[in-house]
């Protein structure tokens, strides 16, 4: 049974292309960016604004190339922003304005 062609790109169990890749065991300290994104997701989860399931759906929806290009928490902030827009917590106009101010 070859399921390799059917799997979604984030569904990595047994994925052929990574089988020969070694494990980078080095400690990679989290950056301030990483910790803040992580914490924002935690606050949004605790307040019922978005579930961890919605976070995952957003991450899985990233095109495969972007999924692997982005760092772990860069994927998260994209998913968080997308979910906030999808839920109407923020609007595109508000986001555009906030980006313009930054």
């Amino acid at each position: 049974m070859d399921h390799e062609g059917l799997r979604a790109h984030h569904d990595l169990g047994g994925a052929q292309k990574y089988l020969c890749q070694g494990i980078d065991q080095a400690a990679h300290a989290l950056t301030d960016f990483d910790k803040e994104v992580d914490a924002i997701r935690g606050v949004l989860g605790a307040k019922g604004v978005m579930t961890v399931d919605e976070l995952r759906r957003g991450i899985e929806s990233l095109p495969e190339a972007d999924y692997h290009r982005l760092t772990y928490y860069q994927r998260w902030i994209c998913s968080i922003a997308d979910n906030l827009l999808a839920r109407g917590v923020i609007t595109e106009a508000e986001l555009a304005a906030a980006l313009a101010e930054s």
């Binding site: 019922g48 604004v49 997308d82 109407g88 917590v89």
Partner: peptide, 22 residues
């Protein structure tokens, strides 16, 4: 899930049709 500032009927709303954010 309880929504903080999210209208209750937004549960059925996914990503608005035709909108592509990626």
């Amino acid at each position: 899930t309880s929504g903080a500032g999210v209208p209750a009927n937004s549960f059925a709303v996914g990503v608005p049709s035709g909108q592509v954010r990626w």
